Computed example of a mutant assay.
Amino acid sequence: MSAVKGIRIMLVDDEPHILQFLEIGLVNEGYEVITALDGMSAVTLAQDFQPHVVILDVMMPGVDGFEACRMIKKIGFNVAIIMLTAKDDVEDRVKGLTLGADDYMVKPFSFDELLARIQARLRNQFPSLLGEVTYGPFQIDDRRKEIIYEQKVLELSPTEYELLKFMVLNHGIVLSKTKILDTVWSYDFGGEDNIVEVYIRSLREKLNDKGHQLIRTFRGSGYRIDLP
C-alpha cells in the first residue's frame, strides 16, 4: 500500500488476544488504530474517532456485532465495516450486509487477507486517502490531481480528471449520462447532457481509444470503462 498515514481503523472483539494481535499488525502497517471489547463501547468510540474502517466481530455479549453495525452506520459518517464471524453461515452474511456491512470474513483468517480486504474497502470508499491507487493501466494520484495511463501522464482539465477518475473507479459498470452529470458536474448542472458526449470524445482522443475498446458506449444506457 502506498500511504496509510491518517487512516483510522477500529477493532471490535471481545477476545483481548485477537485485538492485541490485530492492533500490533495494523499499527506496524502504519494505520491509526483504536480498540473496543464490546459493541456498545464501539458505538460510543466511533462517534468521536470516526474510523474509516471498522473490523467488527459478530458474536459478542450485550450489543452484538449486528446491532453495533446498524448503530455505527446510523451515526452518519462514511465508514466501511468488515464483519468477522466464526461460522460461514449464509444467513448471517445476508443479515450483516442488510444492516450495512461492506464485507465479511470467516475466522480463522490470515492477516494478509485482512490487509487485502481493508485496502479493497479503502480503494472503494476512500480512494483519495491512498494518495495513489492503480487500476490496470491507470494510476490515479488524487493529491496531485493526476492520472497516468500506460506510464504516461495525461494532460487533463479538472473536469476531465474527475470524469475519468469516476469511470476508472467504477470500471466494469455502465454509467448513465444522468449519473455522470450528477457526480461530476453536480446536481445543479443546468446544461445539456450532450456535454458528457463531448468530454467522452476528448478522453478517447487523449487515451488513443480510436476503436472505443477502452471507453465503451452502450446506447440508451451510458458508458463503461473495461480494464484488461
Rank of each mutant, 00 (worst) to 15 (best):
M60E: 00
V27C: 11
A46Q: 03
T35H: 09
V63F: 04
I24A: 10
T44V: 12
T35C: 13
I34R: 13
P51I: 06
Y31D: 09
G39Y: 01
F49Q: 01
V58E: 01
T44G: 05
H52I: 11
E29M: 15
M59Q: 13
V53Q: 03
D57F: 07
H52M: 08
A42V: 14
I34W: 11
I55P: 09
D38R: 05
G30C: 14
L45V: 11
V27I: 07
D57G: 03
T35N: 11
I24H: 13
T35S: 13
T35V: 12
E29D: 15
G39L: 02
T35I: 05
L26V: 08
D57K: 06
V63K: 10
I24N: 10
L45E: 04
L45P: 01
T44M: 12
G25Y: 15
V27N: 07
V63T: 14
G30R: 07
T35R: 07
N28Q: 15
V27W: 06
V58D: 03
A46L: 13
E32F: 09
E32K: 11
I34P: 07
V63G: 02
V58T: 02
L37D: 12
E23K: 12
G30S: 06
V63M: 15
L26P: 06
V33G: 06
V33M: 10
V63D: 00
V54Q: 07
G62F: 02
G30T: 03
Y31K: 05
V53R: 00
L26K: 02
P61F: 00
T44D: 14
T44S: 09
D57E: 12
I34E: 11
M60C: 07
L56F: 11
Q50W: 04
G39H: 01
M40I: 14
A46R: 01
G62Q: 03
Q50P: 06
V54K: 03
H52K: 11
L56W: 08
A42W: 15
A42I: 09
M60V: 05
A46C: 14
L37A: 13
V27D: 04
T35E: 14
P51E: 15
H52A: 09
H52Y: 03
M60F: 04
L37C: 14
M60R: 08
G30V: 02
A46S: 12
A42C: 12
S41I: 15
V54P: 01
V27S: 02
L26Y: 04
F49P: 06
E23N: 09
Y31C: 02
T44Q: 14
I34K: 14
L56E: 13
G62M: 01
V27G: 04
G25D: 13
L45W: 07
L56V: 12
V63W: 00
P61R: 00
G25M: 10
E23Y: 04
E23F: 04
L45K: 11
D38Q: 13
V53F: 00
G25F: 09
V27F: 02
P51N: 13
T44N: 15
L37R: 08
V54F: 07
L26D: 00
A36C: 09
T44H: 08
D38G: 07
E29K: 12
P51G: 05
E32R: 04
Y31W: 06
